[in-house]
Computed example of a mutant assay.
Amino acid sequence: MRITVVEGDITSQDVDAVVNAANRGMRGGSGVDGAIHAAGAPEVLEDCRRRFPHGLATGDAGWTTAGRMAARWVIHVVGPNRHAGETDRSLLTSCYRRALEVADELGARSVAFPLVSAGVYGWSREESVDAALEVFRSADTADTGVDEARFVAFGRSAHELVRSRVESPGGPG
């Protein structure tokens, strides 16, 4: 699997699937979640209501249509909220692992990822990138059908941080 890094808006990525850093209720929110629901239009929310009437557990993932975005699917992951006491790193790595598993179920070859739980959920960008790289570079994901895992960093400083960690020879994973 090739790991790439781009600076930009995850909602405009021309990939098979975009990953949404969702909340447990799966009804939209702020940050990446709000942007994806806005760009996908009502179709994303309607599909969330239909597929996930009770939401999802922290660390889990599921998919919906991408609505009006260029991608075909949205893979929703519920990241851990450090501020709410969810400090178990395995919940964060589970988001990336489950996203790849769902991508495989869908047959998605290219997947755009945000920095899950970085931001309002209190995990640092470094922790989020390192958790993703641990999963992307592990032997467990050697059999994935995903050809490209694309980090989409919003803003220059985030892009530089992600790029430097991905390119670091001694980095995680």
Rank of each mutant, 00 (worst) to 15 (best):
M26F: 04
D140V: 03
A41L: 05
E134N: 12
G59F: 08
F151G: 06
E126A: 15
L100G: 06
L161W: 01
V135F: 01
R68D: 12
A108G: 11
A149E: 06
E126R: 15
A132E: 13
A41T: 10
G170F: 12
F113L: 15
V74W: 02
D147T: 13
V5R: 11
F151E: 08
D16P: 04
E43S: 10
R82F: 11
G31T: 07
A66R: 11
V116Y: 06
V19I: 14
F154C: 06
V5I: 14
M1I: 10
D16T: 09
V74P: 00
M26K: 06
G122V: 13
R109F: 05
E167Q: 09
M26V: 07
A112E: 07
R82T: 05
A84E: 10
N20I: 08
A66E: 12
N81V: 01
R125F: 04
M26A: 08
V32G: 03
I36D: 00
G122S: 14
A41P: 00
D140F: 02
E167H: 05
D14T: 15
G67D: 11
L133S: 14
Q13L: 04
R82Q: 06
R82H: 10
V78A: 02
S124G: 13
V102K: 01
S30F: 00
H159E: 07
T4H: 00
F151T: 07
T58R: 05
F52D: 07
R150Q: 08
F136H: 07
G107R: 08
L100T: 14
R72M: 09
A103G: 12
G62S: 11
G25A: 12
S164A: 11
L91I: 01
F136S: 07
A158R: 01
G170L: 13
D16M: 05
Y121F: 15
T87H: 01
E43D: 09
E86Q: 13
A61K: 12
L91C: 02
A38T: 10
D47L: 08
S110C: 05
A139F: 04
P53C: 14
R72Y: 04
P80K: 02
I75G: 03
